[in-house]
Amino acid sequence: MLRIVMNALRTGVVTTRYPAEPSVPPVRFRGAPVLRPGSHLPPTAVCPAGALSERFDAGGRHVALDLARCVFCGRCAEDPWAGAITMGKDFELAARCRADMRIEVVAEDTAFVRAGPPRDPEAEAARASAEIHRVLGRSLHLRHLDAGSCNACDWELSALLNPVYDVRRLGIDFVASPRHADGVVVTGPVTRNLETAVRRTVEAVPDPRVVIAVGACAASGGIFGEGYASAGGVDRVLPVDVYIPGCPPRPEAIIFGILVAVGRLSARRPPRS
């Protein structure tokens, strides 16, 4: 026992200070792709996840990126398109509606960029913690719901409880029963075999409740898409409050998304029947 205590003391504090201090991802980290307007943008077929789309109008070729679908594989930023698209470092991508995750540029026009409303992570985090205090008295208890994920998002959710991220320090915890939860975090595209279980679990969470879609599959169906066995995203089955892009989102990206979600509580919909 004494040895365990000594060892714990020797190890010291390993916990991150995110979001109070920013997290800087490593050099090779692939965050949100950055599309350069007015450049030679790749054909949309380059993207294996179907995240790129295009349309033509008088202004030229519009290329749009759907961050909810993107699996951050980096293929669109490889030669010969390396100049047109680069993999950025931004991972704080959570948004409240699908449209906010669309970034559109025009191949021939450097001026045209359309994206979701600008985000301000700091203000968002501050507002979120104020909300946690006001509505839930400091704590947000979430129930995890695997709706057919590849388990990468699930492991990142469990990483939130490891000594490095330790989300309990932010008043966030994961609970065993939906009855004890203020909301659910859903991973996976909602498989046919889990659809009933997903609906029933969410219905068991008392209103008001938040539904957070974690990762590309939950946010949009991701690379798996829609098919005989997959609904193609959580919002095909239930209303979603916050989408967290990533394949999988790194733990800080999930923390960011959960904090965004809590801010939503003041604007909750009236209880559903």
């Binding site: 090779r28 980290f29 692939r30 990468a152």
Partner: peptide, 19 residues
Amino acid sequence: LRLKERLQQMNERIAGNRF
């Protein structure tokens, strides 16, 4: 969990992805 986390952070430095 701590040892695993250290390895996954290493993964992210090598591959740009923790997996």
